[in-house]
Design a protein around this nucleic acid. Sequence first.
DNA 1: GTATCCAAAATTGGCGCCAATTTAGGATAC
DNA 2: GTATCCTAAATTGGCGCCAATTTTGGATAC
Lengths: 211, 211
Amino acid sequence: MADVVIDQEQEASDTRDVTDLVLQDILAGVLLPGTWLKQIDLERRYKCTRPEVRRALDRLAQKRLVEHVPNRGYHVYEPDGRRAREVSEIRIILETAIAGTIVQNASPEDIDTLGKLAEHFDLMVLNGTMLELYEANLAFHRRLLVLGGNLELIDLITEIRQRTSSAPVSQWRTRARIEQSGREHHMMIDAIAAGQPERLKEVVRQHILQN
Amino acid sequence: MADVVIDQEQEASDTRDVTDLVLQDILAGVLLPGTWLKQIDLERRYKCTRPEVRRALDRLAQKRLVEHVPNRGYHVYEPDGRRAREVSEIRIILETAIAGTIVQNASPEDIDTLGKLAEHFDLMVLNGTMLELYEANLAFHRRLLVLGGNLELIDLITEIRQRTSSAPVSQWRTRARIEQSGREHHMMIDAIAAGQPERLKEVVRQHILQN
DNA sequence: GTATCCAAAATTGGCGCCAATTTAGGATAC
DNA sequence: GTATCCTAAATTGGCGCCAATTTTGGATAC
């Protein structure tokens, strides 16, 4: 397993927490699975102190994005096929479960908003960075879930979604797949507009399985 | 909001983590909602150092069992009706979703094991402490979920189950309700033995709603 | 040439100190 | 007697040091 390579210093964006910064680098594929996260490296990389690094690592270990080996350190989790499959299954259960409510609650304005977010995603596919794309995707799905009316569920899905994304590169590698994701977003909106919950469920299922 | 009252010192069980100790005291209702968790108090109560206390508090805050107010401290979350309802809804979604798989996978030995665990729960209703009862209940449900075949799902349910338990006293207050829980466990087993997933789902739904 | 052992360097992780902020209590003014 | 301000005590939380453990590199023996 390779160590963290500090090739370029990153601007200290003081507003955001170190935990988020590390998390984003893992999700963006900058910190690859298996990478040992040495405290000194992170300290320099994110221009922060030792305790901050340790807090971040502990939190990420709690979220099971990194593994903690006592007296050895922390390293990014290796992709686990079984686990990824199980998380997908859970996501399908949760996200299809509220499809009915979403279809019921969606007003024309909501559908319009979703359309804008889907188009924003398409735009980021062409002109955005990996992170912007990731966030555009998150924004669309978050807005969709809001219509489900269960705030706790949104947090939960956001959380478990991060658990699989420890292999972001392998999942999002092909442009064709990303473009397909964009099309599926519009298919979801169409299903909602048509008032067809079953169709929405099917698209969501495919969307999660193909990610 | 009252502060932590240190009436009796607790034996230092060195094997277990401070986080778990605080967690259990919250679940057991020793640390009531609203209680301010002062670092010095916890330090003395659990015979541990300052950094250990802080790590525990940070973890519990991540799990949203306590709330962190910067420069003020941490306090146990007040019960939130909306949130409790939403968590119940999520639990119903997840636990009924795998009912079919559970019925399919359950062997006669599994049913036998479940029966023993259900009986153990009944026994604890009579002779056990609140914590033992809580753990007996957890053991039964965990064994049940194992039959669902999704390990990730078990962890997830265990996790979100803790989120509502911030009001353990109000939920488990009456003995009648606890005994009803015990009966429902047996009803679940019966439904599994009879190979009736729909009946299992219904019992699970009621079980969660009445908790 | 390869395996083993030992020592030095590096890394993790426990712990306590102290500054910054907040809270409580009392003195003063009205 | 009550409200306001100010001071002192208490609490949080940032930060760095140092011991314990692990890893690495090299010297030695076979």
